[in-house]
Amino acid sequence: MYTPINVATGYLEAFTRSDPDEIAGFVAEGFRNEHMSELGSGCCGREEYRRRLPHFMATFTDRKYSVQDIVEMKRQATTEVVVKYQFQATHADTDCRIEIPGTMWFSIADGQILQRTDTWDSLTFLRQIGADPTA
């Protein structure tokens, strides 16, 4: 059975299987991908998002999103799902194992993600790959 929480968690789980088509299949045609972290870059549209996924997957291998907490809120036209996560991966450029905390806010309607707002700790990432700008 479809639930907004199943959509959000299914989307995150799909990253472990490394199939860009499966991941992009969770998002709506007019999907808006917004990043609030300095190192992130957003985009609009399923096709553009799908085009970017192979680069993300090549940069972060053995990736996994671990859900730490999840909250669902009903709105008039959408359901909002907020996921606190831990992202684990190997950063391919440095071969460093990373573990980054973050939060994603999903707007979901009719079984598809309309918008994803992602906030993650980019300073922790830089420190873990040995590129700490404050050192």
Rank of each mutant, 00 (worst) to 15 (best):
Y85V: 10
G30D: 15
C96R: 14
T90H: 08
I108Q: 06
R63W: 08
F31C: 09
F125P: 07
R51L: 09
T124S: 14
D118Q: 00
W105C: 13
S37D: 09
G111I: 04
V27D: 01
Q68S: 04
C96Y: 12
F31E: 01
R127C: 07
T124D: 08
F125S: 01
G45K: 01
H35C: 04
Q128I: 01
D118S: 07
W105K: 07
D110I: 02
C44M: 13
K84Q: 14
C43Q: 08
D93I: 05
G102W: 10
A77L: 13
V27W: 03
T61S: 07
Q128L: 08
I98C: 06
Y65N: 11
A92E: 15
A77W: 11
F125Y: 15
R32M: 03
R51G: 05
R116I: 06
L114H: 00
K74F: 02
T90P: 06
A28W: 09
T119L: 15
T61N: 02
D69H: 14
V67N: 01
T94S: 15
N33L: 10
E99M: 11
V67F: 02
Q88T: 15
T79E: 01
D93V: 03
C44P: 02
T124P: 01
R63V: 11
D110G: 03
Q76C: 02
E38A: 14
I129Q: 03
E99F: 01
Y65V: 07
F87R: 04
W120F: 03
H91F: 00
L39K: 00
